[in-house]
Design a protein around this nucleic acid. Structure first.
Lengths: 198, 198
DNA sequence: CGTCTATTTGAATGTACTCAAAAGCGGTGG
DNA sequence: CCACCGCTTTTGAGTACATTCAAATAGACG
């Protein structure tokens, strides 16, 4: 029996885009999930910890970032509704994480741990395909980002960001956008003034 | 019957790291491959073309790059022996490629086209897992690169590159290394002089 | 050997950063 | 509900890292 209007709707829809599950498989999959609320400014993960789960965002906004030797934060990715987030290397290898993940808004995630994910792969091999497709898309997006970081000036990067993620700009403090784009908040502020004057 | 000392040894070894195939599956997989030699400076792919194959490098060195509006080349990835290379987005969506792929050395690749890959997924679903693992690793490597591009100065990026890929530095012209690291060849030359003086 | 491309070197320039201070904004408690 | 506190954004001046342009040198390939 399909659940309707539950916290699971979004994730099932997410999965439905790539593979088709029968009701038993849905039931089984859901039984492997745990939900967790992360309050604004709280951490889902910190460097040194082992990332125990892959996390699907039902509501809210997370950021994955590192802090360099000068204490400056650099954002590796944002995650909002319908995205999967985690420190993949730490998760797979059970080694200490290198990234922080914290919440920019109160955030609800659905979590699956490694043991359950392995079980899922074993019992419902279709999920191998599902996660292959998810990662493929993430890989392509990242490759685009690398290419743009190499090809574009700070101004072009900012304009592309706004064009590509208009909803992000409204939700996320400018400082965080700068940390994602690879420039200082001060410089981003100057850019925006200059662009506004056009 | 397993083939030995053939062009297929390397790719079977590559696959063997992640999944186990029985002889029939090996046979079938190999039947789906075509080999192709790309001479130095020749293209495997150009923007606008559709990327028809995923490519496993048996021998040689490829680069995937874009050319910006000023005609400057930016390298998204290098590929050497034992790596998979292609324009994934173009391959999956059958849309015009955005990258060039060309050979820095005479290069031998084993190719699988989309139709055959789909057939492979269907007949030997283990390959869903295999390519999931391959992409996962590529994703993690890319994420590291993004993080380093955000966190490091040009000098640190160069030193990390040399440390991580010592074999690349010997094979690849400095100009190409600069195009990968996101700096001008002139600046890389200055860096190296400065570092040598230490 | 000659041609073409890559690398080195130097000088001038520009993009983005640092430091410092003021202004704006949001949350919290009195 | 207002006042205050802390954090973010803005603004300006000086600086540094990396680029551009130009020319000389070195190296690779036919």
């Amino acid at each position: 029996m399909l659940t309707s209007n539950t916290p699971f709707d979004l994730i099932l829809q997410n999965i439905g885009k790539h593979i088709t599950l029968d009701p038993t498989e849905v039931e089984f999959f859901i039984s492997l999930l745990e939900s967790k609320l992360i309050r604004r400014k709280d951490y889902l993960l910190q460097p040194g910890e082992i990332c125990k789960t892959e996390n699907f965002i039902v509501k809210g906004c997370l950021r994955t970032y590192s802090v360099d030797q000068d204490g400056v934060e650099h954002i590796v990715m944002f995650g909002i509704e319908d995205w999967w987030v985690g420190d993949l290397y730490s998760f797979l290898m059970a080694t200490p994480a290198q990234y922080y993940i914290d919440a920019l808004e109160d955030t609800l995630v659905l979590q699956i741990n490694k043991q359950n994910l392995d079980l899922l792969y074993e019992r419902v091999p279709k999920f191998e395909r599902f996660f292959r497709l998810i990662i493929q898309n993430a890989f392509i997006a990242q490759q685009n980002r690398i290419n743009q970081n190499l090809s574009f000036t700070a101004e072009q990067r900012y304009l592309e960001f706004v064009k590509k993620y208009p909803h992000f700009e409204q939700r996320i403090p400018q400082k965080q956008v700068a940390a994602y784009l690879g420039m200082t908040p001060v410089f981003l502020s100057m850019l925006r003034r200059k662009l506004a004057g056009k």
